[in-house]
Design a protein around this nucleic acid. Structure first.
Length: 252
DNA sequence: GGTACGATCCGG
DNA sequence: CGGATCGTACCG
């Protein structure tokens, strides 16, 4: 069981509760400051569903299948490195569940959820589209230039900027509280907690350079088609942990 | 005020 | 592999 489970009532991040982690690779995480940062807005929120209501009432949903943790202070890859707090990253320092949306390359947006720990946040990297795929496709296509072949289902949200495009998430969501935002919220996975065999791969973050580039702070569901980048080596190591003849089968 | 660059994506 | 494209950070 991955460390989340819903309590009674409508799904929202404030109603999710952290559970002890009892499956690898969670307990294989090397000791470090991330131990504490991984709760209560845990980057391992996989199988949770991000829901979005558009202004016209249409609803979009996607299962979270890939995330990255960014810590504060020591994490040189984080926007909050060195404890730097600016107008842009202020949301990283707000209460867990606060959205941190920033623009990158002048073109795209990336979405984070503030997590426990000073200046810590979780970057949403990939979703498995569940509802509103045609709308997502439209949103993705409309922001492209010339005529392009429509993206396959699995590539609608397989990247941090792609998922923002597909769900129409922009800077206006920055500093919003995910627990009370009317247009976006988090729900428990439709199929409940992941099966014990669902393996969560722990790998290095994407597009990072520097001292912290090798830290195992990216998490994704093994075997899921929508994951943006597969780490064959990390998956091999996972197999080792599961032991010969045992362990789970990849998810969907 | 000036400048360099980025937690990305797309197309050739 | 290069270009798009601009807010932000940092320097002076």
């Amino acid at each position: 069981m991955i460390g989340w489970h819903p309590k009674e009532g409508e799904g929202s991040i404030s109603q999710w509760q952290s559970q002890p982690i009892n499956l690898p690779p969670h307990d294989k995480l090397p000791p470090g400051p991330w131990e504490e940062a991984l709760a209560p807005t845990d980057p391992r929120i996989h199988t949770g569903v991000l829901a979005r209501r558009l202004p016209d009432g249409r609803e979009l949903r996607g299962r979270i299948v890939e995330t990255e943790a960014y810590l504060g202070g020591d994490d040189t890859a984080s926007h909050s490195r060195g404890g730097r707090q600016t107008a842009r990253n202020a949301a990283m320092f707000m209460k867990p569940g606060t959205l941190y949306v920033y623009q990158i390359y002048g073109l795209y947006f990336c979405m984070n959820i503030s997590s426990q720990g000073e200046g810590a946040a979780v970057l949403l990297r990939s979703l498995e589209p569940l509802q509103g795929l045609e709308v997502m496709r439209q949103l993705r296509q409309s922001q492209r230039k010339g005529p392009a072949r429509p993206p396959k289902d699995w590539q609608l949200c397989n990247g941090p900027a792609k998922l923002c495009q597909a769900l129409a998430i922009d800077k206006s969501f920055d500093q919003e509280d995910l627990a009370s935002a009317p247009a976006m919220w988090l729900e428990p996975g439709l199929e409940g907690p992941p099966a014990a065999g669902d393996a969560l791969v722990c790998s290095t973050r994407v597009g990072i350079s520097g001292d912290w580039a090798h830290e195992p702070l990216r998490f994704y569901l093994r075997g899921n088609k929508c994951v943006s980048l597969v780490d064959k080596e990390a998956e091999q190591a996972l197999l080792g942990q599961e032991g010969p003849g045992g362990g789970g089968v990849g998810a969907s």
